[in-house]
Write a protein that binds this DNA or RNA. Structure first.
Lengths: 190, 190
DNA sequence: AGAATGACTAAATTACAAATATAGTCAAAC
DNA sequence: GTTTGACTATATTTGTAATTTAGTCATTCT
């Protein structure tokens, strides 16, 4: 239990960031939770921001890997959107951090947090853009600006998860998948 | 030029709110621009917030009227969405106020401003909901939750006008109309 | 030795108070 | 009867002391 202090620190920091946000998490707190002296944190991480960045980077990596993994080149575009969405929606614990960060960015505008969100969104948009480009080339979907389409998909997702849920209670995975299918893939028109 | 002080005041306040926002507009300033004594404002409006509310209310009324007017019961749903959107996008001056208010709500979270935005969005969503309900009943579009669909349409609009434009420069009317057609009405799938 | 530590310091944040600015009033002027 | 701007009470900003927190480093522990 006294080994792998690095991991202990990362875990403690992740929990604290998820629960209280970036600004409200103190290094003393992280040290206390991780059961290490504060100095120990600085033997592994240059400063608070780097600790934060490492946590977010590995979250981004995990998500990208998962998404990459779940894509089936044989399946249709719509099916792949489904699969990726579903997997994404299962990231509940990591999601807690994301949700907290969106909240902190909105309510307090902490710069380090806004930067990190930009970074996350950039990765998501790039990932989606590539998929969309391929789907256009293969004729699976209509020609469109891939970056803007990625942007619209992300905005729809964020709107549903953060804004709609905040006012109307949570949506389950199937519901969200159905909504993407209806609004973006198939379209409303008969 | 010394008559209809009420109108002068409304105009001065509208300009100042559009240019500087709600908080940064002072009653002395409004009086100065409107060429009236400050006391005069209070013979027509109980306080700053009521002056603001009246301006926003008439903006909402104008918009609803315009939208109502532009709807053609004979035309298709998609065409009506187009027409309404186009008309909306012509509201450039009033739009300035809306844009400033969104900015102020985001950056400073002024309560009076956030309330007003909620009010505006509620009206828009109610208006859209009714149209969508009718379109579902007439079979013009697929069955869906009208309120949520209205919400998604609004969010797409706001995302494009405020978020995308902020990062990538303005979109022209035809482009926006085309995007609505592509993403929401027809869908991406081939 | 080398890793871990927590008292320590410098810098940032918050709490508080005085100074300023603003909303709203009202007695005088028109 | 309407308009007005000097006036007041309230809200905001500014400057400053008190507190908190990030980051260091001499000492302790293994």
């Amino acid at each position: 239990m006294a080994i792998d202090r690095r991991k202990q620190i990362l875990e403690a920091a992740t929990n604290s960031f998820s629960l209280f946000g970036y600004k409200a998490t103190t290094m003393d707190q992280v040290a206390k939770i991780a059961n290490v002296g504060k100095g120990t944190i600085y033997t592994f991480f240059k400063n608070k921001e780097e600790l934060f960045d490492e946590i977010v980077s590995s979250l981004i990596n995990e998500m990208t890997l998962e998404a990459e993994e779940v894509i089936d080149p044989e399946a249709t575009f719509s099916e792949n959107v489904h699969r990726a969405l579903f997997r994404l929606l299962e990231f509940r614990k990591e999601h807690k951090l994301t949700i907290k960060l969106y909240q902190e960015a909105r309510e307090m505008g902490t710069p380090a947090v806004s930067e990190v969100i930009d970074r996350m969104e950039k990765v998501v948009i790039e990932f989606l853009s590539h998929r969309i480009e391929k789907a256009i080339l293969s004729g699976a979907i209509k020609p469109c600006n891939p970056e803007m389409t990625a942007f619209v998909l992300l905005k729809l997702y964020v709107s549903l998860i953060f804004d709609w849920e905040r006012a109307h209670g949570p949506l389950d995975k199937d519901e969200i998948a159905h909504l993407f299918e209806l609004y973006i893939i198939k379209g409303l028109s008969n």
